[in-house]
Amino acid sequence: MHFVVCAKQIPDPETPPSAFKIDEATNTVVPAQGFQPVLSQYDGIAAEAALQIKEAQGDDAKITVLSVGAESAQAAIKQVLAMGADEGVLLQDDAFEDGDSHTTAKVLAAAISNLGDVDAVFCGRQAADWDVGQVGLLVAEALGWPVAILAKDVEISDGSMKTTRVLADGFETVSQGLPAVVTVSNEFGEPRYPKLQQIMQAAKKTVTTMTHEDLGLDPSEVGSSGARLKLEKLYIPQSDSQVEIIEGETPEEQATNLVAKLVADKVL
C-alpha cells in the first residue's frame, strides 16, 4: 500500500506573544529571532497515524511525505522521514507562493495523482499557523475521494478505511472505501520520538523537488493568482482588558471582595 502524509512547515506556534510580530505592509508574520520554523504539530500526528498503519501492515507499505513550501520545508519533510516515512517530495515553486487552502490542495492533489498508486492520504486536522482545517477536505474533493476529518483512530484493511472521528459531544465510527483522505486530530496521541538510527538515515535521503511544470499545473491556477480568499489584513488583536487585581489581607477577604464585584457586575 502507498500512503501520503501532507506536512507543512510553519512559524513556531510557541513564539511568545511578546516576540510575535506582524509586518502590516505585507500582511505576514515576521520570523521571530531565535525561532526556527517547525513542522505543524498536527501533521506529525498524521504521520504517526500513517506509520502505525504501515507497521501493522508489514513491510509492503510505503509512505511518501509531501509538502508545499520553501526550501526550508525540507526540514519538516526530513522530520517525518526520521519518524519512519520512506520518501519525501517538496512541492516548491515561486508560482505556489501566497496561495490559499484551495491552491495548496490543488498542488497536493496534483502531486498525489502524479504518484499514481496512492491508497490513503493523511493530513493534520489543521495547520497550526492559520488554523483553518480545509486542506484535507479540498484534496479529497479535488481527487474525488471520500474523506473523514478529525480522526482519533484510523484502521485500514481490506480496501477500506475505518476512522473514529471526534464530534462535539462524542465520537463516531465511519468506514469508507479506498482511496480516501483522513485528517487526524490531536486526540490520536503524540507523534513518536525518532530513533537516532532513523534520523541518520533520513539525513542521507534525498528529497525530490517538483514544480508546477512537473505537476502539469498552470501558474495562473495556483499560488496568489489562483487563490479564492484574499487576505486583506493580518493584525494583532488589541487587548482592552485591564485586569483588576482583587486585594485583601486574607484569602477570605479576597474571595468576599471578588464575589462583591461579580454581584455588582450582575454576573452572580
Binding site: 513556531d12 510557541e14 511568545p16 506573544p17 511578546s18 531565535g34 525561532f35 526556527q36 517547525v38 520520538y193
Partner: peptide, 17 residues
C-alpha cells in the same frame, strides 16, 4: 527534548524571551 531540538531550550510553552 523536542523543545530543545526545536527551540534550543527545554521550557516548552514559555511566554518569555
Amino acid at each position: 527534548l523536542q523543545n530543545i531540538e526545536m527551540r534550543g531550550h527545554p521550557w516548552s510553552g514559555t511566554a518569555l524571551e
